[in-house]
């Protein structure tokens, strides 16, 4: 009974974790940089959902849609503003880490200033008032709605990558920026757009994270970035499909540990991360099976 519950809960959380980490992996896949501000963008999405619900009386899920265009524009502009400077640096990858760490700290400080340090959470009633029955057991409606909202986002992104011209260009840049440029793809614009999409994915996931991570505070960004990083390492760095696998593995492992060894639950992401790095550094889905 408890095992079944943990497995279903793990799958629901796993789908959410995949959405949570997808933006980070997309940006890494195309730009080869780790966006250390990823968790802070998720945190901003949570505050957006909070404000939409309490100030505007809209569904917090609308944050996923509302965030898309502004995030793509802001993210793209940010990339175009900083990429040339990073390219000129002696060690662009290290500089990008420093840059995004700085951005992370700035976002955290502004959020603390704007929203105070108090915990904020959105009422579970915002997504429904009754638990949902699955395989004879009742699950919080928030888990089910969050997973249900994550699936279409993942499908749309994979359809974009697999079926559209721009998506195929993105995959080409992921595979080899030089070869992509050689065949006439505007690598700079594709990178800017991808960065914007990554930001939009992070902010959109934030609107769901406020339900799954027990609320939102300005300082939660670092822990979300670490969690997301564990997901993409487990699934495969730079591999969007691997993110889904990584999310499911982490979700299942986390919920099973919470059920049977609760005191060890916080170690799960790190243990999995270490295990994958030591035994299969390319992640569960290796490059040969990459979608992108």
């Amino acid at each position: 009974m408890l095992l079944e519950y943990a497995i279903v809960a793990g799958l629901l959380f796993g789908v959410f974790y995949a959405y949570l980490a997808l933006g980070l992996n997309l940006i890494f896949g195309v730009l080869r940089i780790v966006n250390l501000a990823h968790g802070d963008l998720v945190m901003l999405g949570s505050y957006l959902a909070f404000e939409l619900y309490y100030a505007w009386h809209w569904s917090p899920l609308l944050a996923i849609v509302v965030a898309v265009v502004p995030c793509i524009l802001v993210g793209g502009a940010l990339y175009l503003g900083v990429a040339p400077r990073l390219a000129r640096a002696q060690d662009p990858e290290m500089m990008s880490l420093v840059l995004f760490f700085g951005i992370s700290q700035v976002i955290e400080a502004i959020a603390a200033f704007g929203f105070t340090s108090n915990e904020r959470s959105v009422s579970a009633n915002a997504l429904g008032s009754h638990p949902v029955g699955i395989l004879g057991q009742a699950y919080p409606v928030t888990w089910v709605v969050v997973a249900a909202a994550s699936v279409p986002v993942l499908l749309i992104l994979f359809a974009y990558l697999g079926r559209t011209r721009l998506g195929r260009a993105t995959r080409a840049v992921m595979a080899s920026p030089d070869e992509a440029a050689a065949v006439g793809i505007n690598v700079r614009m594709v990178s800017a757009l991808t960065f914007g999409v990554g930001v939009a994915l992070a902010v959109g996931a934030g609107s769901l994270a406020v339900f799954m991570l027990g609320g939102v505070t300005p300082t939660e960004g670092v822990s979300i970035t670490i969690l997301s990083f564990a997901v993409i390492v487990v699934g495969g760095l730079g591999n969007p499909l691997g993110t889904v696998v990584g999310g499911l593995v982490l979700g299942l492992a986390f919920q099973l540990t919470l059920t049977f060894l609760p005191n060890w639950a916080s170690l799960v992401p790190y243990v999995l991360l270490l295990a994958v790095v030591l035994t299969r550094p390319t992640g569960v889905l290796s490059r040969a099976r990459r979608l992108a």
Binding site: P140, L213, G214
Partner: peptide, 10 residues
Amino acid sequence: TASYGTLIQS
């Protein structure tokens, strides 16, 4: 710990 749903079931 921020996720208590499974613990509540236990």
